[in-house]
Computed example of a mutant assay.
Amino acid sequence: MELGKMDTSRRDEPTYLAWSIFNTFCCCLPLGIAAIIYSCRVDNANSLGDAGRAQESSRIAKNLNIASLVVGMIAIIMLIVMIVIRN
């Protein structure tokens, strides 16, 4: 490798941090917090160059975000149904 040129072959895994923060505030607090923790682990593993740990943590963060979104949507639908039934 020549001096002054960086190795760009390393691929960083997505952190899903913005999605995790959104889910924490809007959908499901416990799953959102867990997703934020795994998103931070992805960021740390990416900065250390640990591709295996970054990939695993990224997958877990993504799954937690999906679960948080589904739980939040189910809760909102149940709330709307209960309001409609009550009136």
Rank of each mutant, 00 (worst) to 15 (best):
Ser39Leu: 15
Leu29Ile: 12
Thr8Phe: 13
Gly4Cys: 00
Ala54Glu: 04
Val42Pro: 02
Leu69Met: 03
Asn63Gln: 12
Ser68Ile: 04
Lys62Tyr: 07
Val70Ala: 01
Val84Gln: 01
Asn65Asp: 10
Ala51Leu: 08
Leu17Pro: 02
Lys5Met: 04
Asn46Met: 08
Gly52Glu: 08
Thr8Gly: 03
Lys62Leu: 13
Leu31Asp: 03
Trp19Lys: 15
Gly52His: 03
Glu56Thr: 11
Phe22Arg: 07
Val81Ser: 02
Met73Trp: 02
Gly52Phe: 03
Arg41Asp: 12
Arg86Asn: 09
Ala18Ile: 06
Ile74Leu: 00
Phe22Trp: 08
Ile33Ser: 09
Asp43Lys: 13
Glu2Leu: 10
Cys40Thr: 15
Arg53Asn: 09
Arg41Val: 13
Asp7Met: 01
Ser9Leu: 06
Leu48Arg: 11
Thr15Glu: 10
Thr24Asn: 11
Ser57Phe: 15
Lys5Leu: 06
Leu29Cys: 13
Met6Trp: 03
Ile80Ser: 00
Ile80Phe: 00
Ala45Lys: 05
Ala75His: 02
Met78Ser: 03
Ile36Gln: 15
Ile80Cys: 01
Ile83Lys: 07
Ala34Gln: 11
Ile37Val: 15
Ile21Phe: 15
Arg59Leu: 12
Tyr16Met: 12
Met73Ala: 02
Ser47Val: 06
Met78Arg: 01
Val84Arg: 01
Ala34Val: 09
Asp7Asn: 05
Ala54Ser: 07
Val84Tyr: 02
Met1Gln: 05
Val70Trp: 00
Ala18Gly: 07
Asn87Phe: 13
Val71Ile: 11
Leu79Met: 13
Ile33His: 10
Asp43Phe: 14
Ile83Met: 14
Val42Gln: 05
Ser20Gln: 15
Glu13Asn: 11
Asp43Pro: 02
Gly4Asn: 02
Ile83Gly: 05
Met1Leu: 12
Ile77Met: 00
Arg53Leu: 14
Cys40Glu: 15
Leu17Glu: 09
Cys26Ile: 14
Ala18Ser: 10
Cys28Met: 10
Val42Trp: 09
Leu64Trp: 12
Leu3His: 10
Met1Asn: 04
Met78Tyr: 01
Ala75Cys: 05
Cys27His: 10
Arg59Gln: 08
Pro14Lys: 09
Leu29Asn: 13
Cys27Met: 15
